[in-house]
Write a protein that binds this DNA or RNA. Structure first.
Length: 842
RNA sequence: GCCGGAGUGGCGGAAUGGCAGACGCGCCGGACUCAAAAUCCGGUAGGGGCAACUCUGUGUGGGUUCAACUCCCACCUCCGGCACCA
């Protein structure tokens, strides 16, 4: 009795079989085997899986299943990054309380994940918005505080005067509030909490060299993000004043060319230094600078504006005095917020000097040329020979030794107390304060007598009695929450109402998975020790910097606290490419749906539509494909197979409905083949068997290699398609062809697990395929009697010959003589690679 | 501007020094059908030739090698990241 391929039916049956047998939970807790921790970046529970998720989790699930079949104790968890703005926005729009909203979305997501057949151990599940989870964020925060790794300082925020609220960057559109399009966002300074990531900058950058299992591009992005630069701190005394201005420079070799000095507009010394008569002008200048958005301010193409403070400083190297400016091109949050300006050797200083009529003094010249200020059109930033630089004249400014002017000048500064060598990082401390409700409350109390006091009782629970309709941080509207007693002196005090950045949640969730139900500690160190580090982490490259740096930072801090053994959380990282589809764009109606385009014209306005720009799937570009629809039409196995087949995992994937059909056809052919095998009688062995047996074992070898070495599921699937073709060409129901089918199913199990499991059952196999062993190839079956090898003459193909793989050069030459038309009896040179190729030079 | 990655049939892609285009999609032809869909079989880089065959071809130009998609040098284009970081 053979049946049709009905994926919907098969998949639900098999999913029930897996869940009833608890096969994945079992695999996840079997301590007798060597562990393999397969981790995927957990999602924000938006309610619907999108194709990006489906690709991410399909790759991960295939890896997890592959490793399980290799006898590993696979830890494969899933959870939800469930704090964040969308839930709060839903609440502001009056839809539902964030808690209710979030848990409803989580349930929808879990349903879809189960429908995809992902083999998670749901016992390890977690949601970061539960007190059971976030209390440990608070616990870590207090530990960080104890060690001076959490501190408070002023920092600018986006402020909407109409909402009376701080806005997240994503709530600011073109410098205006997302809800008040006519209201410009203001910059305001608030006291906020920071984590001291800069304390780990050196280790974060150094350890990258050890991460051999990480893609080079991600490591490079992190190196740049951390931005280590070697230079020096130089101090300049202000004329007729006791103040000293500290600057950071990577070019101490240019100090003799300083012609002015610039402070960032926010620099705390500005107000102290400004000349009384220039105060009003300064305020006006600052107002103008602050009115710009940060994008405008950091636009390199804008002319560099500045304002003289009417005061001078002394360059201790020359004893000369020069003016002090404030300018918008100097940033307060890099280095010391002040720079020594050398227009002759720095392009930005050069532009500023030309614009403001400041002198330019070259002190480094090319070997064969003396620079002239009058003819310079850009700064000279190359290396050369020092001039007008006191005792450093005629030295090379920089070379590979420590005897160059660069080092000599810093040494001189050091001896005189003017400065020292210094390494500066671009990485900044991590601002974790968010003026939001739906996040982890920062567990501190402000007391009039004791100051900042850590909360004693954890968790500090996020209250439910908050108002979303009054503006401001909803958390501040809960009287019960805000008003408390000081844990230290017992007098009335106020709670912190800021909550934590959700990147805190995702910085250690992979450790919580190891012991997700622990109510006495974030985790049992022993449990983390046996599972961490993560063997394979899979996710989007968009998290290359922030998330992956924060998670590495947390892991290092926890390591230093003695809580965990490993210093790096993720041994191997795979960043999957984007899922893309062509877009339809109308000149009037912007992005339109494919259905809104007919005959190349927009159905709304009749304009000619531009079709075909391939873009990342996104709602705004109207080029999404809903995974749910694909499952309904073809089943989860087809979606999985297509995703893995269409492109190698780290490359972008171009969605194609027609190619999806192709994957469906392949699976149906496998299904039909199995049905055919079980309904026909077994025949005796025959002469075709040998080739099929070899093909079977070649396939096992290739699939194993492709998946284990490079996650090349695309070529592994191609090999399985070839095997299927070979079995059908063989056409007989012999022991060998039945074995070939069985091997095909085993290899298909990580890719299309429902169909493979179903067919396994139909073949009458005992036990679950999900727990079966991965096949091993038989080297004997790979042996061949003859091989076809190409015969080349002068590198050009002139024929092929069939020889024994062990044939000698003489044998091959005589066979070749018959196969080609040319006379090859007197070759100049013979290159014979046994069993591979023969090339003759004549 | 700087850093990283990629350029191969009509399309997704394969081959990491050894027969370029595996596998799939699409397309063309055939079988089945009253017909269509589905399915099955065959063909499918381009040029020339009735044909055996032959020439050209992996972004462009050069080089190394018996042999280059693959290695080296220069350039072009596209994608991603960073971007006044002193």
């Amino acid at each position: 009795m053979s049946s049709k391929y009905e994926p919907q039916k098969i998949e639900l049956e098999i999913q029930k079989l897996w869940s009833d047998s608890k096969v994945f939970e079992r695999a996840s807790s079997d301590k007798t085997k060597k562990s393999f921790y397969c981790l995927e970046m957990f999602p924000y529970p938006s309610g619907k899986l999108h194709m990006g998720h489906v690709r991410n989790y399909t790759i991960g699930d295939a890896v997890a299943r592959f490793q399980r079949m290799h006898g590993r104790h696979v830890i494969y968890p899933m959870g939800f990054d469930s704090f964040g703005l969308p839930a709060e926005n839903a609440a502001i729009q009056g839809k539902a309380h964030p808690k209710k909203w979030t848990f409803a979305r989580i349930d929808e997501m879990i349903f879809q994940m189960k429908r995809m057949g992902f083999s998670y151990d749901w016992n390890r599940n977690l949601a970061t918005c539960t007190p059971e989870y976030y209390r440990w964020n608070q616990w870590f925060f207090l530990k960080f505080m104890e060690q001076g790794l959490a501190y408070r300082k002023g920092a600018p925020v986006n402020w909407c005067p109409k909402c009376n609220t701080v806005l997240a960057n994503e709530q600011v559109h073109d410098g205006r509030c997302w809800r008040h399009e006519d209201t410009p966002v203001e910059q305001k300074t608030l006291e906020q909490w920071f984590l001291k990531t800069t304390a780990y900058a050196e280790r974060l950058i150094k350890n990258l060299d050890k991460l051999e299992g990480w893609p080079e591009n991600v490591k490079e992005m992190q190196r740049h993000w951390i931005g280590r630069s070697q230079g020096s701190i130089l101090r300049f005394p202000v004329e007729n004043n006791s103040t000293v201005i500290e600057t950071f420079t990577t070019r101490p070799d240019t100090v003799y060319g300083i012609t002015y000095l610039v402070l960032a507009p926010e620099h705390p010394l500005v107000d102290k230094l400004v000349d009384e008569e220039r105060k009003n002008g300064l305020e006006e200048f600052r107002r103008e600078v602050y009115s710009r958005t940060s994008e405008e301010r950091t636009d390199e193409s804008r002319p560099k504006n500045g304002y003289a403070l009417g005061r001078n400083f002394i360059n201790p190297f020359t004893g000369k005095t020069h003016p002090i400016y404030v300018a918008d091109y100097v940033l307060m949050d890099y280095g010391t917020g002040a720079v020594m300006a050398v227009p002759a050797h720095d392009q930005r200083d050069f532009e500023f000097a030309r614009r403001h009529g400041l002198p330019i003094k070259p002190v480094i010249h090319p070997r064969d040329l003396i620079l002239s200020v009058d003819t310079m059109t850009t700064a000279y930033v190359e290396d050369g020979i020092m001039r007008d630089s006191g005792r450093f004249d005629n030295l090379p400014n920089r070379d590979s030794s420590e005897n160059d002017a660069w080092h000599g000048i810093v040494q001189l500064a050091k001896e005189n107390g003017w400065g020292d060598f210094h390494i500066q990082y671009r990485l900044r401390d991590w601002l974790i304060s968010r003026q939001r409700y739906w996040g982890t409350p920062i567990p501190v109390v402000y007391c009039d007598s004791c100051g900042i006091v850590p909360a004693k009782e954890l968790p500090v629970i996020l209250p439910d009695d908050v108002r979303f309709d009054v503006g401001g941080n909803p958390l501040a509207s809960s009287e019960k929450f805000v008003n408390t007693l000081c844990p230290s002196c017992g007098k009335p005090a106020k709670r912190e109402t800021d909550t934590m950045d959700t990147f805190v949640d995702s910085s250690w969730y992979f450790m919580r998975y190891c012991d997700n139900k622990n109510s006495n500690a974030p985790f049992d160190p022993e449990k983390v020790r046996s599972s961490m580090p993560v063997d394979q982490y899979i996710g989007g490259v968009e998290h290359a910097c922030m998330h992956l740096i924060y998670a590495r930072f947390f892991t290092m801090v926890l390591h230093d606290m003695g809580l965990i053994e490993c210093e790096e959380p993720f041994t191997n990282l795979l960043t999957q490419g984007m899922v893309c589809l062509e877009t339809y764009r109308c000149p009037k109606d912007d992005w339109i749906l494919p259905s809104e385009c007919s005959d190349g014209k927009c159905v709304k306005c009749g304009s000619k539509v531009t079709i075909g720009a391939i873009e990342k799937m996104s709602k705004s570009k109207k080029n999404t494909v809903d995974p749910g629809e694909i499952i309904n039409k073809y089943g989860a196995d087809t979606a999985r197979t297509f995703i893995l087949f269409a492109s190698p995992p780290e490359k972008e994937l171009l969605w194609s409905d027609q190619a999806v059909e192709g994957s469906y056809r392949f699976l149906r052919r496998v299904h039909d083949l199995v049905e055919e095998k079980i309904s026909s009688r077994v025949e005796p062995p025959n002469s075709l068997d040998k080739d099929l047996l070899r093909k079977t074992h070649e396939t096992i070898l290739k699939v194993t290699k492709d998946i284990s070495e490079k996650f090349q599921f695309n070529t592994a699937i191609a090999a399985l398609m070839e095997l299927l073709n070979s079995i059908q060409e063989h056409g007989k129901n012999t022991a060998v062809s039945i074995e070939a089918v069985e091997m095909l199913l085993r290899c298909l199990a990580p890719i299309a697990p429902h169909l493979a499991e179903h067919a396994w059952k139909r073949l009458g196999k005992n036990g679950l395929l999900a727990e079966a062993a991965w096949p091993e190839y038989d080297a004997k079956a790979l042996i061949v009697d003859t091989v076809e090898i190409p015969v080349q003459i002068n590198g050009k193909l002139r024929g092929t010959i069939s020889v024994s793989p062990s044939a000698s050069e003489a044998e091959v030459l005589s066979a070749a003589a018959k196969a080609v038309k040319q006379d090859i009896s007197k070759p100049k040179k013979v290159i014979y690679k046994q069993g591979k190729i023969l090339n003759l030079v004549v």
